[in-house]
Amino acid sequence: MKNRLKVLRAERNWSQAELAGRLDVSRQAVNAIETGKYDPSLPLAFRIARLFAMSIEEIFDDQQ
């Protein structure tokens, strides 16, 4: 699944570690989601959406 996490993070000038800390996950998790190697669970997707004040659909795209 594609996502805009890397772009949104860059817009806020956050490092992967900073984003990981704000989401209360590991930096490995942020990296795996950004590179598309891991699709987050629904609770984590909601946390990401809330952090960026967007809807899940605005961040994640299930169209391959």
């Binding site: 956050w14 490092s15 570690a17 900073e18 984003l19 990981a20 800390g21 704000r22 989401l23 209360d24 590991s26 930096r27």
Partner: peptide, 12 residues
């Protein structure tokens, strides 16, 4: 405030 996430990661 800007880097509280990184401190959280350091604690973890």
């Amino acid at each position: 405030e800007a880097s509280w996430g990184e401190r959280n990661v350091e604690r973890r």
